[in-house]
């Protein structure tokens, strides 16, 4: 590491002791950061310094650190996941920043995502939405014949694109209305495109939308901020699909 040039950055980080505690921004200096550090590794370096000097480290969520778990709920300089296309915070590297930069780090902000501590938010509202219909009911029993249910390739691809969602919450965090419409629509569209999901499509869209509202998410007003912030490139065409599914459900 020593042969790399290092950077010094100023971090302005949201610190909040607990769910009901008032939070505020604190300023830290990140020293000895190389361009190869990921954003989370940069925070690890800062936290080691904080621990050494007897201070409370910055609490942040992380799990896989390979861009697939969706835990790292950070808004960096006003954009969820930092604004690099199709990238989660853990896959954002410090080569995207330069020496002397000031970086704002905030947690997701939405009523439905309450803050646990510092940068950690409670994203279980998304689980509640999934529980309302993001599944297919199927009989267990004998293994069905692999070729019994044929799915055209375009349908399979479409469903797969929707299934790319990792439930990270960036869509609701980016939305000026804190709407979880992109997340909800991805699951509705994925299952509505497949024969296994079609049976419960009408009930699913109604229940998931109702639950989304009950969880405290806002209404979609087609800003498309969600699509731009999504680290998996989930497209707002799925929201149009959800709207079609909703119209169909009115007739059923």
């Amino acid at each position: 590491m020593s042969d790399h040039k290092t950077m010094t950055l100023t971090l302005i980080v949201w610190r909040q002791k607990g769910p009901n505690a008032p939070g505020k921004f604190e300023t830290y200096t990140a020293k000895g950061i190389t361009e190869h550090h990921s954003f989370l590794e940069m925070l690890d370096v800062v936290n080691e310094d904080l621990i050494k000097s007897g201070k409370e480290p910055i609490v942040f969520d992380h799990d896989c650190r390979e861009g697939i778990c969706g835990m790292c709920s950070q808004v960096i300089n006003g954009v969820p996941h930092g604004g690099q296309e199709r990238t989660t915070v853990c896959q954002l590297h410090m080569r995207k920043f330069k020496d002397g930069d000031t970086i704002y780090i905030e947690p997701w902000r939405a009523k439905a995502f309450p803050i646990h501590k510092d940068l950690v938010v409670d994203r279980s509202a998304y689980d509640t939405i999934i529980q309302a219909g993001g599944y297919t009911s199927c009989h267990t029993g004998g293994v069905p014949d692999g070729n019994a249910v044929l799915i055209p390739k375009p349908d399979a691809d479409y469903a797969m694109d929707a299934a790319e969602c990792i439930g990270c919450g960036a869509c609701a965090a980016a939305c000026p209305n804190s709407s979880a419409m992109l997340f909800t629509s991805a699951k509705v569209a994925q299952l509505a495109a497949l024969p296994q999901g079609k049976a419960e499509a009408a009930e699913r869209v109604k229940n998931m939308l109702e639950t989304m509202q009950e969880c405290g998410f806002g209404n979609c007003s087609n800003h498309y901020e969600c699509q731009a912030a999504c680290p998996k490139g989930v497209n707002v065409k799925f929201i149009a699909k959800l709207n079609r599914e909703y119209l169909k459900s009115l007739a059923s």
Binding site: I12, W14, F25, V75, N77, G78, V79, G83, Y104, E106, R109, A174, P176, H223, Y224, E225, Q227, A228, A229
Partner: peptide
Amino acid sequence: YAVNNKLEA
């Protein structure tokens, strides 16, 4: 947000 950079809105 303290800093808010809009991408599409």
